[in-house]
């Protein structure tokens, strides 16, 4: 499994660059990951990331967009504004989680 260095953190990632070790993530790293994909974190972004991390811990699976809106209470429209174009994958990346596997 590749190791890559982002903002002085050595992290384990998959072939695409998604983090594979839940515990290697911290907030400072999250902000650095966001910067890598052109996103500047705001409190609204952190709300999404916090939900994803907590939900992953409970469920063992990355939440889909639908779950973030129905369970996390963060509207779909807003997710597309915060993480443009590919919200589900971008959110997962910043949160240091695998891509969501669900279809919906």
């Amino acid at each position: 499994m590749p190791v890559t260095t982002i903002a002085d953190h050595d992290i384990h990632v998959d072939a695409e660059g998604f983090m594979t070790e839940y515990d290697e993530w911290n907030q400072q790293l999250g902000a650095a990951l966001a910067a890598q994909i052109g996103i500047e974190m705001t409190p609204e972004h952190w709300k999404v990331v916090d939900f994803l991390r907590t939900d992953y811990k409970d469920q063992g699976e990355t939440a889909t967009l639908r779950r973030v809106s129905t369970v996390g209470g963060l509207p779909t429209k807003q997710l597309f504004v915060l993480f443009p174009k590919k919200p589900a994958k971008k959110m997962a990346y910043v949160a240091g989680l695998p891509k969501p596997r669900g279809c919906v």
Binding site: P2, V3, T4, I6, E16, G38, K85
Partner: peptide, 15 residues
């Protein structure tokens, strides 16, 4: 196998 990347490995969302 572990490899050290020189440039950070980042998904190419907008590439």
């Amino acid at each position: 196998m572990t490899t050290i990347e020189s440039a950070p490995l980042v998904p190419s969302f907008d590439a």
